[in-house]
Design a protein around this nucleic acid. Structure first.
Lengths: 203, 203
DNA sequence: GTTTGACTTTTTTAATTAAATAGTCAAAAG
DNA sequence: CTTTTGACTATTTAATTAAAAAAGTCAAAC
């Protein structure tokens, strides 16, 4: 019955994701999730050995969805700039949607200090960097831009875009849920930086 | 005896700055400072009505020194790129030197939530943005680069540079005093971004 | 105008306890 | 043999309080 077990694991992840996204990881107890599913706590622990495994599985699912959409964007886009602009919008959507998980920022809500989470985060960032590096290389082949050391350039670009977001969001008054205005300002500035950055790689 | 009082205020600021820079603001008590100066606590309070006034006065002194040097850099530099590169180095020096004051980042050590500090920080950031804006405009006049909306461009540049620093430093393991390696990586990346950014403003 | 000893008030820290939550296990059900 | 659960234990977190430290005051003196 390995199929049924997998199916149930998915069901658990569905519910856990809803709770995590709405209340945050720390405000969601294993009991909450078990009750949502109308099962007992030991049943839940039968499928996930501990809470952190569940959290990681949920995070992996989110990142998988992200990368699926990111790869699609890169494939369908005609130019590097178009791809990066859509990537910026995708990032905004995900950041907003899963803000309560506080993934990717300073451990304000949860103990992201856990090894497994940190490893996943780093691995995810590296994977995204590789995709952006490939995108830059495609742009170079197409003659849209010029650069050697595309790996460093891609990393610099990603650090700049992410940092720009941190900087702009940081100016806002700290709230439980940041204002929508803030997200829009980040988006606008990230796109503006992207345009100048790409222009800087044209000669 | 208004002169002597000012002189004494300066003496107090000297000692306070040393303590703040070495132990941080929260680990420095008004008693510590009074003892350093071999005066009583009420004497200290005679010159500064409360601790936050003292902190703000110290911060203002630091920023004044920073702006003096920044203005000098801008005046003597032949090109925008040269000026920005030296500005980046200046920022590194100050950030490293006064790291323990935790000025400009998330209130990890001190209660920077205080209104006066926040106002000073914002005012300082705005002043720096104006200087950079003027620098860009000089560059435009000289024909080094092209851009309309120099104010927005300057703000975007500053946010990007500062954010890049936050992003790169954030990857490091959190320590009391971050590694020197981290500062160097920030410096290198900020200079690289500056080069591409300016290049992106050339056409 | 400046300084201070002795004081009060406020804020931090440490210690204690109570409560909540994570996690286990042996037994039972399918 | 896989899955489920009631009843349990072990950890972590949150609330409470007491003690200590630090901020800030004041009347008196120099």
């Amino acid at each position: 019955m390995i199929e049924a077990a997998d199916k149930k694991r998915e069901l658990i992840l569905d519910k856990a994701l809803l709770r995590f996204a709405h209340f945050g990881i720390n405000k969601t107890t294993m009991n909450d999730i078990a009750e949502d599913l109308a099962i007992s706590k030991p049943s839940l622990y039968y499928y996930f050995p501990d809470k952190i495994s569940l959290v990681i599985a949920v995070a992996e699912r989110i990142f998988n969805e992200f990368f699926t959409r990111l790869e699609h964007i890169i494939l369908k886009s005609a130019t590097v700039q178009e791809a990066l602009n859509e990537t910026i919008e995708l990032r905004k959507i995900f950041f907003k949607k899963y803000f309560m998980l506080h993934i990717g920022d300073t451990p304000s809500d949860m103990n992201l200090n856990h090894e497994g989470i940190k490893a996943l985060m780093q691995q995810t960032r590296e994977k995204e960097n590789v995709l952006i590096k490939d995108l830059f290389e495609t742009g170079i082949k197409r003659g849209e831009l010029k650069a050697n050391e595309s790996k460093q350039i891609a990393e610099l670009y990603m650090d700049s875009i992410i940092g720009l977001g941190m900087c702009v969001m940081g100016k806002q008054e700290k709230q439980l849920m940041p204002e929508s205005k803030g997200f829009e300002e980040v988006l606008t500035k990230q796109k503006a930086l992207t345009e100048i950055f790409l222009n800087g790689l044209k000669n």
